[in-house]
C-alpha cells in the first residue's frame, strides 16, 4: 500500500514539473535522428552486412572475373576498375536507405514524430546522414582491400578524399529518389523491384567496367551522358591525379537537381502519409 502511495507521490511530482524548453533547432533534431539510427545499429550490428560484405565481394569478383579478359591482367584492370566498382557498390547500397524507411515508417513512432513541433525533414535528413557514414565505411573497406591487392592512387590521399567527397555527395542526393519511392510503394518487394529497375541499367550501362570507346555508337552515346559515368569520371580523375572538372560540374548539377526535386517530393508524401 505504501508502495502505491509512493508511486502516486512520484507521479504527482513528475506531473507538477511543467518546464518547457526552447524549441529544438533543426540541427539538433537532425542530430537526434542520426543518433536514433546509430542506436539501431548498436542493437542489430548485422545491418552493416551490406556495407562490409558487398565491397569485398564486388571488388574480388569483378577484378578476377573480368581482369584477364578485359585488360590482359588483373593488376592492370584493378587500377582502372577500382574507382568504378567503388561507385557501383556505394550507389547500389543507397537502395537500402529506401527499404529501411519503408519498414520504419509503418511503425507507430512516426505518428509521434509528425505531431512534434520540429523541422519535419529532420527525421529523414538525420537518417541519411548516418547512411552517408555507412557509405563511407563501405568505401574505406574497398579502398583498403584494393590497396592490399595492389591498387595505387596517383592522386594521393587528397585525390582519394576529393573522390570520396563527390561520391558521397552524389549518393546522398540519389537517396532522395529512394525515400520518395519508399513512400509511394506499398511493399518492400515492389520497392526493391523498382529500385533495381533504375539501378541495374544505370550502373552497368556505364563506364564502370569498360571504356565507352569499345561499345557500339548508340550505346556509347548513352553511356557518355549517364550521370553514373560522369560520376565515375570525376572519381577516377581525382584518384588518378587528373581531375575531370567537366564531369565534376555535371555531377554537382545533377546532385543538386535530385535534391531539389526529390527532397520536397519526399516531404510532401511524408506529410500526407
Amino acid at each position: 500500500m505504501s508502495q502505491n502511495l509512493n508511486q502516486t507521490e512520484a507521479l504527482k511530482q513528475a506531473l507538477s514539473n511543467r518546464s518547457r524548453p526552447k524549441k529544438a533547432s533543426p540541427l539538433s533534431t537532425c542530430a537526434t535522428f542520426s543518433g536514433r539510427m546509430l542506436l539501431k545499429i548498436k542493437y542489430v550490428p548485422e545491418q552493416l552486412f551490406d556495407v562490409t560484405a558487398f565491397p569485398v565481394i564486388y571488388l574480388l569478383m569483378f577484378t578476377y572475373l573480368f581482369g584477364g579478359a578485359i585488360a590482359g591482367s588483373t593488376s592492370a584492370y584493378l587500377q582502372f576498375v577500382l574507382p568504378g566498382i567503388l561507385v557501383l557498390t556505394v550507389v547500389m547500397i543507397t537502395m537500402y536507405t529506401g527499404i529501411e524507411l519503408n519498414n520504419d515508417i509503418k511503425k507507430g513512432i512516426f505518428d509521434r514524430f509528425r505531431t512534434l513541433p520540429i523541422w519535419n525533414p529532420s527525421v529523414l535528413v538525420g537518417a541519411l546522414i548516418v547512411d552517408v557514414v555507412r557509405y563511407l565505411m563501405a568505401s574505406t573497406i574497398m579502398l583498403i582491400l584494393g590497396y592490399l591487392l595492389g591498387f595505387r592512387a596517383d592522386g594521393g590521399i587528397l585525390g582519394i578524399i576529393l573522390g570520396l567527397a563527390i561520391l558521397l555527395f552524389f549518393s546522398f542526393s540519389i537517396s532522395w529518389i529512394w525515400t520518395t519511392l519508399s513512400l509511394i510503394m506499398r511493399s518492400e518487394k515492389s520497392l526493391m523491384a523498382a529500385s533495381m529497375m533504375i539501378l541495374f541499367p544505370t550502373t552497368f550501362v556505364s563506364n564502370v567496367f569498360v571504356a565507352p570507346e569499345t561499345m557500339p555508337n548508340w550505346l556509347a552515346a548513352f553511356v557518355k551522358v549517364n550521370p553514373i559515368s560522369l560520376l565515375v569520371d570525376a572519381v577516377r580523375g581525382f584518384m588518378e591525379g587528373t581531375p575531370d572538372y567537366h564531369a565534376l560540374l555535371w555531377v554537382c548539377v545533377v546532385s543538386v537537381l535530385l535534391i531539389a526535386i526529390f527532397g520536397p517530393l519526399t516531404m510532401f508524401l511524408y506529410k500526407r502519409k
Partner: peptide
C-alpha cells in the same frame, strides 16, 4: 501544445 498517444504504441520498439 498537444501530445498524442496512438492506438499502436507511438514508440521506437528497437530502442
Amino acid at each position: 501544445r498537444i501530445s498524442l498517444t496512438g492506438q499502436f504504441a507511438s514508440l521506437d520498439e528497437d530502442l
